[in-house]
């Protein structure tokens, strides 16, 4: 299977697609799914993910969805033309995730609030971390920082209870 080998660096999977302007719900639906997958947008209608069994399958289903909505789509096995090109791609994706992790860390640190709201925030931010983690192919250092911030927020409540 392409890309399933953990040492098989350099294998990417691309989706090229074209969707009619209307209905816009189809366009928005596809766009949301691409965003959830954390794709690198290479050009209009061209997105990329590091290849593994899961990313390939997800892009194939999306290709089908595009076709079902009257568009055209093709899934490609691809290899960036050189390590430099791949590194730039990976860095851009890593930076996109870093921004998401920073947003989580900021929310964790600014959550003062009462006990109930704090617990809800912890739960929500942990869900957010899981979601980001699933589309995080090149984890940036911000990941550990965000986890720590949320863990600290969770622990701050136990602390208060213990000193009460």
């Amino acid at each position: 299977m392409p890309g399933a080998d953990p040492d098989g660096a350099g294998a990417w999977v691309l989706l090229t697609y074209r969707l009619p302007r209307e209905p816009s719900t189809a366009r928005v639906g596809v766009w949301r799914k691409l965003k959830r997958l954390g794709v690198a947008q290479l050009a209009d209608g061209v997105v990329a993910l590091p290849a593994d069994a899961r990313t390939r399958e997800q892009l194939e289903w999306l290709a089908d969805e595009v076709v079902e909505n009257g568009g055209a789509a093709t899934v490609w096995d691809a290899r960036p033309g050189g390590r430099h090109a791949e590194r730039e791609l990976a860095e851009a994706m890593s930076e996109a995730r870093a921004a998401e992790y920073r947003a989580v860390a900021d929310q964790a640190r600014s959550a003062g609030l009462d006990e109930g709201a704090r617990q809800n925030t912890v739960r929500r931010l942990r869900g957010e971390l899981r979601k980001i983690g699933r589309r995080d192919y090149f984890p940036p250092p911000e990941r550990a920082e965000a986890r720590r911030a949320v863990d600290e927020l969770a622990a701050s409540g136990e602390h208060e209870e213990a000193t009460r």
Binding site: G29, E60, W61, A63, D64, E65, E68
Partner: peptide
């Protein structure tokens, strides 16, 4: 599998 009836459809 892609392109068969018993597969992903309409979400």
């Amino acid at each position: 599998m892609r392109g068969v009836e018993l597969s992903h459809h309409g979400g």
